[in-house]
Structure formats: C-alpha cells, structure tokens
Design a protein around this nucleic acid. Structure first.
Lengths: 284, 284
DNA sequence: CGATTCCTTGATACGGCTCAAGGAAGGTGG
DNA sequence: CCACCTTCCTTGAGCCGTATCAAGGAATCG
C-alpha cells in the first residue's frame, strides 16, 4: 500500500507579513493574510513580469474547509479567486439536478470568471480540501487594469488561457476514448503536481472516481476499470486515491478511436486547393 | 423541396458611411468599411450601453471569401475579430491531423481570443461563406480599455460569455445523448437566426454533416440519421442543408441518458449535511 | 457532363453504460 | 477501542447507443 502522500498545505509564502505559528496543527493560521501584486503574478504564472513595487495594493486571503462552497450558482458575482493552496472542483448543475464537473482548480488557478458576464455565477465551486484562496474583487481589478497596462494584459492572458483549456476539454470529450481521456487526465495531474513542487510520480487524487468520471464524461465504473487496466499493464500503480506513475510516456501517447475521420481529414488537408492563408497587418 | 433560404449577406448597417452600389452582385462592395464603438457594442450585444460619442475611433472591416482562412494555428496573434456578416468555423487540429470544430461564429460573435495567452493562435478560423469581419487590433483594445472603463468591462464580459459557452459545450458533450445534442444544436441555431433577424423556423445550414458531427462529438452518419429521425417524428423537416423547425418545444425538452448518475447526484444534493453556503462581501 | 463532395441508409461490431453485489476506508457514537 | 454506518471503490454480466464499414444517390462545380 502506498502511503506518504504529499501534504497539501504548504507554507512557502514570500509574504513578509504575519506567518506566526510555526507548528501548524492542521489549519490553524486563519488570521488574515495578504498578497501583493508580485506574489499574485508569480502564482498565476504570468509571463510578463509584473514588477510593480506597489506594495500598497494587497489582496485578501480567505480560507475554506473541505466541503464548503466558495460560491454557488446564481449567486451575485463580485470577485474572482486564485488558489493559493488546496484543491477544489467547479461544477455545473444541469436542468435536472445532474452535476457536471468542469475543472479542478489548484494552486495558481483562477476561477469565478464565469460570473463576469451575467453578474451572477454560472457554476458552483466546492473545496475538496481545506483551501486558502486569494480574493480578487472585480471592481478592484478593473480599476487596476486602467492604471497598470501590464496588469490589464495579464488579466486578458489568464482568461485566454482558461478559454484554451476549455477548448482542449471540448476536443478531448469529442474525440478521445475512455482510456485516452483517463491517461491524459493523469498526465495533466502529474504535470500540475510537478509545477507545484510535489512529486509527479506519486500523488494522491483529491477527487472521487465519480468526480473524475463527470469531468471526463465517463461513469465512475469506467474510470475505475481503466485505472485497474493501466495498473495491470504496468503504466501506473493504483491503490484507492494513491497513484504512482510508472510509464509517463506511454500515458502521453495513448490513443484510441481516431481511425474514424482521420482519413477524410488528412485528405482534406492534403488537398487545400483553394483558400490560401491570409494574413493581415492591422493599421489605423 | 424547401427553397428560399435567407440571404446570408445583408446590408442593414446603421453605418452612415459608404454603402454605395445598390445592386449587390454577390460580394462586390469590398471597399473598406469602418465601424465605430457604438456599432461594435451593438453587434456584440453588450448590455452596458457603450455610449461613446467617440467617432474618431474606427475599426476596420475585412472581407474573406468562402473557404479562406482568417487565421491558422501557430500564426502570430495580434487581432481579435467580430463577425459583421457571414459564417465561419473555428477548428483545432489535434496531434495527428484530425480536425475538431470548436464553434461556428456568426454575426455578432467574437473570435480569436485563444491567441491572447501565447501570442499565437491556438485554433484556425475558416470562412464557410463570404464574410465581412471587423478587425479589433489587440493593442488598440488594451489601450482603449485603459481610457474607457465601460469598454474594458465589456471586453471582460464578452470573454466571460465565451467561457460560459465553452463550459456548456463541455457539459453537453459529457452528458447528453446524440439526439439531445443534435436537438440542442438546432435550437441554438434557430435562436441565433432569430437574433440576427432571419427566420427561426426555416433556415439553411452553413456547415456539412461532418462539421456538425465534429462540433457535437458525433460521426456524420449519426448526425444524418438523427436529423432523419427528427424528420420522421415531425419535429423538423430536412432536405439537405435546408431545415424547417416544426416543433421547437419538443426539441428543447428532448433528453436522453441522464438516468445514470441522476439518482446518486440527487441524493447527494438532498443531503448536504455539512458545508454551508458561504458568501463574502469584498472590501478594501 | 464528368468529377468530386456531400448526404442518406443499411448491416454489423464494440465500447462504455447500466445494473448488481461485495469489499475497503473513514467517520461517529457508544 | 470497537461496532456501525456511510461513502467510496472494484469487479462482473449483459445490453444499448453509437461508431464503423459499405454502397448508392443527390448536389455542386468546373
């Protein structure tokens, strides 16, 4: 049995403030923490270094315990959230009570964006573990965007990244087999863990088979069976929530199904008789 | 056989400028057109009235002919696009040549957003008919956002709307049957046509069965069969690209498949013992 | 009018869902 | 600490929905 999962609560903040109690008995440092712009930029992995020495601008942290909802569907929107530590899920409840998992936000991820348009949240965010989130009041953000050009760009960039992510999900759900979906899921988790400084080879799932299935458009049984199959082939080791990655390359290249339209598409691509690529230089 | 499809090229611009040649032989008024902020806001259906009398700010139009590519994957990004007239598709090409349709932009839709993050387009946009697009140079947009608060908000709003749309696609692909997907597709098309001032009851598809299938995560045969089935039941009439909507209500309520996880979810929802809804007032 | 693309329809196979049952883990109260 | 309960996970058997393969007809275009 695999044990020793990575602790999900880490205290590596460059935050100069507080950080008082050295021994952390679970989740006791609930005193307000604040992050400045630089920390925020680092967390969001924003390329353009937001080198604002503006230490006046601080963003408040908030804590949520496992199972708590950060926001619910229909709730008035006024803030975005960035995960500082912990794991969550965002879900959509379809017309008749069925839950659809949309994402599993973790350290460095932004969520809550869906509320901007209608001023009400379109989805629900639930903490899968104790979480420390940074609150980004939307009013504050837009004001900030108007004064700091790089910041405005950063906001667009992060939202664009989210959109690309959703698109790749659509693509995956539309085209890949169950095995390929689960394989991709594991690879992306492994990558994210590596980003966060954890082991990419051995980690604990923070979500149930049911939630994974919902996220991937599969049933929990299929997820379970697929993990078992990967285990038997030697690609991974599985023991309940504990996953050991054995053969990341095979997981990355695992495919299935494409034979369907591949030929038609390749033909179409090879032809491309008319329709040249057009490029435009914008001027004004 | 159904005929008399709505002409896809209409000349109802409140644009005071040009609009010279009265008889439109296909697509001959290719002289540069310009739109101001107000027109842009109307087109994008932005709630907050962008009442900028700033007629100095004009956005250039560009024309594309059927089959042309507006942008390709990997191409440097520097502009967003808003559809003024015509129909397009955006596609992702997966690791081995397979084409995945992501959206069918039409009048009032924004696309190109996926390029912001990496500065290169992640998808390809192809004209399905002759198109008239408004070019939104990204530099110009960000500059504008800094000076006009409502405009900045509008940009976020439109991007948020796109994200919500993608999320609902994910939800659909993950949970609905083939019949339900096709039904929803028809309903949303009907709605869009109504928005644009066309008939919501009788219209022409601008895309092939193959493209619809790719968009919905189905094969072209399944799309064809499903349309035929709807035809037999009397929900619609089909003749090649021509679609007549007969029973929109049935199309809207058509479902299938959910029995799977519905019970489990409803139970979970009914319980909700711990985890109270949390609401936060942002202050600063 | 031939070539190509697109659409329809049929026969068949199979991947993943459904239904079902039992076991493991974790939490709770005695 | 143990008994109980609930949630979560695994595995099996069978079926159904959709993909696959195939062939012919319709529309479009040069």
């Amino acid at each position: 049995m695999l044990s020793s999962p990575p602790s999900e609560i880490r205290t590596e903040f460059s935050n100069p403030a507080s950080h008082s109690s050295p021994h952390e008995t679970g989740w006791q440092r609930q005193g307000k923490l604040w992050s400045n712009l630089k920390e925020l930029g680092d967390l969001l992995r924003i390329p353009s270094a937001v080198s604002l020495a503006d230490d006046e601008l601080l963003f408040q942290h908030v804590q949520f315990k496992t199972g708590q909802r950060v926001h619910t569907i229909g709730q008035p929107f006024d803030s975005l959230y960035v995960v500082h530590s912990g794991f969550l899920k965002t879900v959509l409840i379809d017309e008749f009570g069925n839950e659809q998992v949309l994402s599993f936000p973790m350290k460095g991820d932004l969520f809550g964006v869906d509320g901007i348009h209608t001023r009400h949240h379109a989805s629900e965010a639930v903490a899968l573990s104790n979480c420390d989130l940074i609150l980004l009041p939307f009013k504050k953000l837009t004001a900030l965007g108007r004064t700091h050009a790089e910041f405005e760009h950063a906001m667009y960039s992060v939202m664009s990244r989210e959109l690309v992510r959703e698109q790749s999900m659509v693509s995956m759900l539309g085209a890949l087999s169950a095995e390929a979906r689960v394989a991709r899921f594991l690879v992306s988790l492994s990558d994210r863990y590596a980003d966060m400084g954890y082991s990419s080879k051995l980690f604990n799932l923070r979500m149930t088979r049911h939630e994974i299935g919902s996220y991937l458009g599969l049933t929990l049984e299929t997820v379970s069976r697929t993990l078992s199959a990967f285990n038997e082939i030697g690609l991974i080791s599985v023991d309940q929530r504990s996953i050991g990655i054995k053969d990341i390359d095979s997981l990355k290249t695992l495919r299935r199904l494409p034979p369907s339209s591949s030929r038609a598409k390749q033909l179409a691509a090879r032809k491309q008789k008319a329709a040249g690529v057009t490029q435009l230089a914008a001027s004004a």
